[in-house]
């Protein structure tokens, strides 16, 4: 095992997959010569050369679309979009083409494309550099959406995403880039679509995704001191949803909190709540509570801290749930 930062976990996953498969290539703004605007792709140009690691101009639609086209014809593109907020510029290529092409061509092609992008708050840079758009992409048939909650997760999930035959939106959590955890030295993969019981507990289930898993862990430690045992489930992927693991946990604890950084309406939490309403309503001892951001754009500076959810909000939600809602 070695201590690895989230940032280096991403680099290593790309590195290993590029070494393994010559069809894997990486393009994006400032990914090559400068090693990424935030250093996530450092060293890859030197290792693989500028045929496989390429800087691009500011042309989001073109580079994602290039990835879709190349993927349809058998290559394995990794396209970096510097911030998730700029995914909107490539939306036609992602939603109308990457997601639908296999279906509309009657299965003649597959689109093994990974679009990696920094998501969420943490840089305090305001509404155009802070969004979490998982529910937008999860809503589109044909896409997978991955949100790794730490370096271990990031490495295993990115390797699986690169090998997946489908377009994957890979949301790197920008506030975790420097965070280190221990990671096996040997190769490992984490399958897409399998949630992970991060911490077992019997009193309340917290299903969290992305950065919120870290907040849920802190909240669980806090609550443990009060004698409350929280089960933290890391959803890992917003699509597909691992209903089995989530249902099993709720049937055990009878209480559910869902935590994500995006706003509540039409969000991941709404989807999980619907799942429970459809499949396990009578197991609940209290109403489901969603811990999310406010329904506003993310303001700049420290105002972000008020708009985005944190560990304290999860602690409060657990207390409310135990009181019956």
């Amino acid at each position: 095992m070695s201590q690895l930062s989230y940032r280096r976990a991403i680099t290593q996953a790309i590195d290993e997959e590029m070494a393994r498969n010559p069809d894997v290539f990486l393009i994006g703004e400032d990914v090559a010569e400068s090693g990424g605007a935030f250093g996530l792709t450092r060293g890859l140009l030197a290792r693989y050369g500028d045929r496989r690691v390429r800087d691009t101009p500011i042309s989001e639609e073109a580079i994602v679309g290039l990835g879709v086209g190349a993927a349809a014809l058998g290559l394995r593109p990794i396209v970096e979009i510097m911030f998730m907020d700029f995914m909107y510029l490539a939306m036609d290529q992602i939603a109308n083409h990457a997601a639908k092409m296999r279906y509309m061509y009657g299965g003649q092609v597959q689109i093994p494309l990974v679009v990696r992008t920094l998501s969420g708050g943490g840089f305090r840079a305001g509404m155009h550099h802070s969004q979490s758009l998982e529910s937008l992409f999860g809503h589109i048939p044909g896409l997978k959406v991955v949100m790794p909650s730490d370096a271990y997760e990031a490495k295993g999930l990115l390797k699986s995403s690169i090998r997946d035959p489908n377009p994957v939106i890979f949301m790197e959590q920008k506030s975790l880039l420097g965070a280190k955890v221990s990671v096996p030295d040997d190769e490992y993969l984490i399958p897409l679509g399998l949630a992970h019981v991060q911490r077992p507990g019997s009193d309340v289930t917290v299903v969290a995704i992305g950065i919120m898993v870290q907040h849920a862990r802190l909240a669980a430690e806090e609550l443990f001191k009060e004698g409350i045992e929280v089960e933290v489930v890391d959803a890992r992927t917003a699509m597909p949803i691992d209903s089995e693991t989530i249902l099993a946990s709720v049937k055990k604890t009878h209480r559910l909190i869902v935590a994500h950084e995006a706003p509540a309406p039409f969000g991941f939490g709404a989807e999980i709540a619907a799942l429970i309403a459809e499949k396990a309503l009578y197991y609940l001892d209290a109403p489901i509570i969603r811990v999310t951001s406010q329904f506003t754009p993310v303001p700049v500076g420290r105002s972000e801290d008020y708009i985005l959810p944190g560990a304290k909000d999860i602690v409060d939600a657990v207390h409310r749930s135990l009181k019956g809602g």
């Binding site: 840079a125 305001g126 509404m127 155009h128 550099h129 754009p297 303001p299 700049v300 500076g301 105002s303």
Partner: peptide, 8 residues
């Protein structure tokens, strides 16, 4: 009102 910041 302090919500937009430098870029906005």
């Amino acid at each position: 009102g302090g919500v937009g910041g430098e870029a906005h």
